[in-house]
Nucleic acid binder design. Structure first.
Length: 381
DNA sequence: AATACCTACAACCGCCAAACA
DNA sequence: TTGTTTGGCGGTTGTAGGTAT
C-alpha cells in the first residue's frame, strides 16, 4: 500500500539511482520544493512526493553532514535521549547536519547495543533490575550522576597571567523545541517547581550564600516569583554565587556561560534542552559539582539571540576540584540524604567521567593522575 | 569459493496533525 | 463543520557490503 500521493500514479520504489538524485537535486536547488506532491512531475521523476521529500531531507540536502558520528555527537544523542526518549527529530536538532533518520539508525545499530552491553535499559537509561553486577560492566553503577559539564559545553579559557587569549566557540544553541522549561524535583525540598512558560525566559535565581545554606549553594526558589520578571531580559536560566559558581547540569543540557548586561558578574547557565512531558532535573547547584568556574573577569556582553557565538575571553582557568573524587563520593550518600535525592535511577558513567578528566588534563594541565582517579572511582562504585 | 550471518543505513509504512477546500 | 491532502514523524523492513565459517 502506497501513500495517498502515490495512488494516482505508478511510482518507482527502492534505492534511488544517481540520475534520479541528480534530477531531484537540480530541481530543488533551482525551484525549491514547494508542494512536494508536485515535485515528481515537475522534476520528471517516477517517484511519489513523499519519497522525494525523504530523499532530499535525508540524503541530498546540501547542509547534511556525512560520515561517522563523533564521540561528542554520540554523547549528545545519549544525553538528549535520556530526556526526550525516541523523539529522533528533536534529538537531531541538537546535531547540526544530522537527520532524524540518521540519529535513529545510529541509535539502533550502535548506541542501543552499547547501553545494553553495560546493563542499561536503553529506554530509561537506568540499570536493568534483572542485570545487577553480573551483566553490568564496571563502568556503570547506580550512584547519582556526577555533575559534569555537559558534553556540548565548550569552554576554552585562557590564562590571564599569560595574557594569551583564546577564541571561544560557544556551541550553537539549538532552537528550543518548546517554550516550556521546567525545573521540577519533587524530592528536593529546596526546589519546588519552576515553570517559565509564558514568562520571560530569563530567570535569575536568588543569590545564595554558602554561610546561610548548610546544603551548599542550592538555590532556594521559595521566594522566587516567576511573575515578577520586570527586571529581567533575555532567554536563559542563570545562577549566581558570591564567590564562585558551580553548575550542575543534567548531562543533557548544553551549558554556556554568559555575562549579563545587567550585572557583569552574573553568569548564566543556558539549558538547551527542555521537555514538555518529563521534568528536567537540572539547574541544581550543590557541592557535588565537578567544576568550579571562577567568574570570568571580562566577557563580552552577549545579546539575547541564541546563536553561534564567538568571544574573545580572558578569564581564569577552570580548575576542577583537586580532590574531586573524595569531595564528591565520600559523603555522597549523606549529601543525597540531605537533599532527599533518591539514589535509585541515577546513572553514573565512569567512561564519561574519564573522558572529561582526560580532556581536562589535556586542556588545562596536570591536575592529578587520571588513571588513579578512575581506579578509585571504579573501586568505590 | 560458496554460503550464512551480521551490520549499517537507506527507504518504506502507517499514523497523526495541520492546512486546506 | 467535514472530508481530503499534505507534511512530519517514529517504527520497521529491505538491501548491500563486509565478515565468519
Amino acid at each position: 500500500m502506497g501513500h495517498h500521493c502515490c495512488t494516482k500514479q505508478k511510482v518507482k520504489r527502492g534505492l534511488w539511482s544517481p540520475e534520479e538524485d541528480e534530477k531531484l537535486s537540480s530541481y530543488i536547488t533551482t525551484h525549491g520544493h514547494g508542494c512536494w506532491s508536485s515535485v515528481p512531475k515537475q522534476a520528471d521523476l517516477q517517484r511519489c512526493g513523499k519519497s522525494c521529500r525523504l530523499r532530499w531531507i535525508n540524503y541530498l540536502r546540501p547542509d547534511l553532514r556525512r560520515g561517522s558520528f563523533t564521540a561528542h555527537e554520540e554523547r549528545v544523542i545519549v544525553d538528549v535521549h535520556r530526556i526526550l526518549g525516541n523523539r529522533w527529530a528533536q534529538i537531531a536538532k541538537y546535531l547540526p547536519g544530522r537527520t532524524d533518520n540518521e540519529v535513529k539508525n545510529f541509535w539502533n545499530s550502535c548506541i542501543k547495543k552499547k547501553l545494553i552491553a553495560q546493563g542499561l535499559d536503553p529506554t530509561t537509561h537506568n540499570l536493568k533490575s534483572s542485570s545487577t553486577s553480573t551483566n553490568a560492566s564496571s563502568s556503570t553503577t547506580t550512584v547519582p550522576v556526577l555533575p559534569i559539564l555537559a558534553s556540548s559545553c565548550s569552554i576554552t579559557p585562557a590564562d590571564n597571567t599569560t595574557t594569551t587569549s583564546s577564541t571561544k566557540h560557544l556551541s550553537q544553541f539549538p532552537e528550543t523545541p518548546s517554550p516550556l522549561f521546567t525545573i521540577n524535583n519533587s524530592n528536593r525540598n529546596t526546589i519546588k517547581s519552576l515553570d517559565i512558560n509564558h514568562h520571560p525566559s530569563f530567570l535569575t535565581l536568588p543569590l545564595t550564600n554558602h554561610a546561610d545554606n548548610a546544603h551548599g549553594t542550592a538555590p532556594n526558589l521559595h521566594d522566587y516569583n516567576p511573575a515578577d520578571q520586570s527586571n529581567n531580559i533575555g532567554g536563559f536560566v542563570s545562577f549566581k554565587d558570591e564567590t564562585h559558581f558551580t553548575v550542575v547540569p543534567s548531562l543533557t543540557d548544553n551549558i554556556n556561560f554568559r555575562t549579563s548586561s545587567l550585572n557583569s558578574s552574573l553568569c548564566h547557565a543556558i539549558f538547551s534542552s527542555s521537555s514538555l512531558d518529563r521534568p528536567a532535573d537540572v539547574g541544581i547547584l550543590d557541592e557535588c559539582s565537578t567544576w568550579e568556574v571562577p567568574l570570568p573577569a571580562s566577557m563580552k556582553e552577549i545579546n539575547n539571540g541564541a546563536s553561534v557565538l564567538e568571544q574573545q575571553v580572558h578569564e581564569d582557568p577552570i580548575v576542577p576540584k583537586t580532590n574531586f573524587v573524595d569531595a564528591n563520593l565520600d559523603n555522597l550518600d549523606q549529601k543525597c540524604q540531605d537533599f532527599d535525592i533518591p539514589l535509585i535511577g541515577w546513572n553514573f558513567d565512569l567512561d564519561l567521567v574519564e573522558t572529561e578528566l582526560m580532556n581536562c588534563e589535556a586542556e588545562f594541565g596536570d591536575y592529578g593522575d587520571v588513571s588513579a582517579v578512575m581506579e578509585q572511582l571504579q573501586w568505590e562504585c
